[in-house]
Write a protein that binds this DNA or RNA. Structure first.
Lengths: 347, 347
DNA sequence: TTTAGCACTCAGTGACATAGAGTGCTAACA
DNA sequence: TGTTAGCACTCTATGTCACTGAGTGCTAAA
């Protein structure tokens, strides 16, 4: 049913269409890909492939373009990964060598690299803070009714927020509270903060219940809101050079999707969830009206724990062979870099 | 030279073109704006106005559109400000009433509001940290070769970065350093940190010169880089609904400008620098290939000190009357809100 | 000074013909 | 039986042409 020659023809169609964005005709294949048969034969094969749903015609008597199913078959069986070039690897290595000053910075740089290497839109989800644990908690008195609550996590992120305090509390009080919080929270993961711990702190801080409420609120919010919704995008306008965006309407829908961070986070996290690179093609992204787009995503992890995701969004007519390699390579590099940042094993 | 009727005609042309984005003909003006004269008369006036450079024809025998000079005259002499509606004021008040957790959050919300109210792209420059002074400095030990340096400024912003430390330094040492830094830096403005202060710290921390270097580096970088380049954009894709962006090429140049934060900062800061709202039309933005765009910017200040800028970028065919009011109103509201945040006078 | 009238210009639109790419089918061929 | 050459057919893209309508500029009359 899918003999060798048919595979070759399908491969040629997908390959050529990815390169040119033009429907591919039988003559083109015969000439460019030297299968040793005439256009007429290839036409027959194409007819079969169309019947099986791997390719389609935009209109009668145009060339063929791959269907989503065709891309899927290509990705699963036909494509051979296109490893990164020496220059590209060098570029990545150089970028990551710069002194790290901040986890956010690493994330951002990853996004930039990803879009630069693929020419599509890159998305990076920062490490979830829920999983990491407190390194240090500090409350800083600002003025009579306000203080700044700062939590430093062991993955190198910093959370902060302003809190209102009753005027009766003095700078001294705040220091006491800081100390207690530190003693209790240090080393605890955000997630693992449970009732008994809270009770513990409560008893020690009976006088300052109000502050405590606020702290717990911060913990809560940090966990659910603040960071989860943040996502780094890179090279959104890169994509506009793709010929599929000659149409203004499509640019608009695209960009309006890009402005909805929550949606994007869901998309990124929606990969099959297992280890490696996930490829979703067209309708396989079961979200919204994101049509004719594909996503390639992968989780990165630190010490074996999945911390976040990186991904690339592009048209279905995407250079899968290349992008898959890049994403794979980058997750590894990112995991490694973050691990060094966090454990301090930088040379 | 610019009699009353000519002004009325110019006003009508600008007004109508802003509303419709179509070249305005003499007949339209006669019908819509009831000047009590025939189209022929208006044609004569238009001919004069064109000679004086206030309007132009896209091609022979089309209607007229305002030239940059025409817009300028409109903004300076003809336009009457269009105050905000009750609903809009309510919207702003409601948005700012939400509990403030962070200066960045206020900035972001301002950007959103600005774009929502104007339908153009909003830009907000956060308060410069250079001007604000240290409230608290803290170094937190992370592990044997790394520490986190945190600076809380009195305007409610927090700077942090990872620093490498020699392994010989203990957690104890770090605490000592923290204390010294706090004692010396507290209340000092970033900008005002001068050599003698540094020397002072040096002598007390002779043992830990390395750390000190890093701290000074942070100060430096924070001052020049980190925050200055950050800018909040809102509603970039809002603009794409403007008919001038039916052309894909223009979308691309637009977006590529939007991705260059530094350029945008310069643009924002490039206002005439005096108190109120600055309007720059087309070529008056002496930057790049930003053609056919206008900017309306204004500084906001805290306790009389200029802290940052907000602005709106849109096509030259912009609703000046409306946007000027909105920008003016928002600076006042923003100044007020930030003042409350920082001084803690929130009710 | 204003207005009516008229000739002129030019973008936009629809009708039409043409070229070119590509297909599907049939019949001949190995 | 699989492959190929040939040919008619389909459909898009492109270019031409004429027509329409909005708008102007000019002239002469009010």
């Amino acid at each position: 049913m899918m003999d060798d020659r048919k595979q070759k023809v399908l491969w040629a169609i997908v390959h050529d269409y990815i390169a040119t964005a033009e429907p591919v005709g039988s003559r083109t294949i015969a000439k460019k890909y030297r299968l040793g048969v005439s256009p007429a034969t290839i036409r027959n094969e194409m007819s079969d492939l169309e019947e099986q749903g791997f390719i389609e015609q935009p209109y009668t008597s145009a060339g063929r373009i791959p269907s989503e199913r065709g891309y899927r078959y290509y990705v699963d069986f036909l494509m051979r990964r296109q490893e990164l070039s020496k220059e590209e690897e060098d570029l990545i290595r150089r970028e990551y060598k710069v002194k790290v000053r901040d986890v956010g910075q690493v994330i951002q740089r990853t996004g930039q690299l990803l879009s630069q290497l693929t020419h599509y839109t890159a998305m990076v989800l920062p490490p979830r803070i829920g999983i990491s644990s407190f390194k240090h908690v500090q409350i800083v008195y600002m003025h009579q009714s306000q203080a700044m609550l700062i939590a430093i996590m062991d993955n190198g992120t910093v959370q902060h927020r302003l809190i209102e305090i009753p005027e009766s509390i003095t700078a001294m009080d705040i220091e006491t509270i800081s100390k207690v919080l530190n003693a209790k929270l240090q080393g605890q993961a955000m997630k693992s903060i449970k009732l008994n711990l809270v009770k513990d702190i409560f008893s020690e801080l009976a006088r300052h219940r109000h502050i405590l409420d606020l702290v717990m609120e911060l913990v809560q919010e940090s966990l659910t809101l603040e960071f989860e919704d943040k996502i780094y995008l890179g090279g959104v306008f890169n994509m506009l050079n793709q010929p599929e965006f000659r149409n203004v309407e499509r640019i608009k829908t695209m960009l309006s999707i890009m402005e909805q961070e929550k949606l994007l986070c869901n998309l990124l996290e929606g990969g099959t969830g297992d280890e490696g690179v996930t490829v979703r093609i067209g309708g396989e992204i079961d979200q919204w009206n994101i049509k004719e787009c594909s996503m390639i995503t992968a989780p990165y992890s630190i010490r074996g724990r999945k911390m976040g995701f990186i991904g690339v969004l592009g048209p279905t007519r995407m250079e899968y062979a290349k992008v898959i390699s890049v994403v794979d390579y980058m997750t590894k590099y990112l995991s490694q870099t973050l691990e060094q940042v966090i454990r301090g094993r930088r040379k």
